[in-house]
Design a protein around this nucleic acid. Structure first.
Lengths: 134, 134
DNA sequence: AGGGAAGTTGACGTGCACGTAAAGAAAACG
DNA sequence: CGTTTTCTTTACGTGCACGTCAACTTCCCT
């Protein structure tokens, strides 16, 4: 089957980004669609990379961070040192992410408690008086 | 005991931020230190608020988001509607945070698998040949 | 063939979160 | 009392991640 390409607009619709964003990512060497004349055509590889970019963004990585990770990611079939390096970076990232998740968990619990407290306040206010104006 | 104040420099050292940052936060109405003449003095309240600001930032909230939350947080002794509103916002935030944590969990698992795969590749390379140059 | 839709390259603008340099006032120290 | 820090305001600069025209080509369709 003949590797089916997407135009820039199809990409935009599929991933909810603007053309500007895709060209910007290309300028930053995050994507490199093939050219048919002057037009851009996006392969399966580019789609995969875009997904990774958008995902990375959701986790607060900068585009430059993401570029380096992507580069490691697909050049790391080269030699052992590269793979070990990637492995190290991955471990660091993993640590970051776990720490971040733990912080989130704490914050979630805090917020839950706050909400319970708020609910109690609301309850006491509604039961004692409707016009709590004193 | 006489509520012990901190100067701007002491704040900077304590929370690892620059004076510029503290003044910037003040301009954005996140902090409002008292003035002794022209000098800023930071109370316990300001310290608590700064902690919340820095925490919010780590979770990717914008300063404007944080300001609104702080405002709700300490004006929400006012009336029931305010508290209910705060409660609603808190629920939304909670949802966001839980979703974010779930995404993180998935990403962590992905990364773990990637790392296992990487470890396997490394293992096969090291056992088969030290100079994998063919 | 002609005309609108889609795509292209500049290039300048924007919002956010500060950095940084200039110039002056105030406090602290020897 | 002078001088050296510390702090102040004012203001312009910066990096990131795009948004927003403008001015063209290029496709596609009837």
């Amino acid at each position: 089957m003949p590797e089916h390409y997407l135009t820039i607009r199809q990409m935009c619709d599929a991933y909810d980004v603007t053309p500007r964003t895709l060209r910007f990512y290309e300028a930053k060497e995050l994507l490199s669609p093939i050219r048919q004349g002057t037009r851009r055509l996006y392969t399966r590889r580019e789609r995969a990379r875009l997904k990774l970019v958008l995902r990375g963004k959701r986790f607060g990585f900068s585009l430059e961070d993401i570029r380096q990770l992507l580069d490691l990611y697909d050049t790391s079939g080269q030699n052992l040192a590269q793979i070990e390096r990637a492995h190290e970076l991955a471990k660091e990232r993993l640590g970051d992410m776990i720490r971040q998740r733990d912080e989130l968990t704490v914050a979630i619990d805090d917020l839950r408690q706050q909400m319970e407290w708020g609910a109690e306040v609301m309850a006491s206010l509604t039961s004692k008086s409707t016009t709590a104006a004193e």
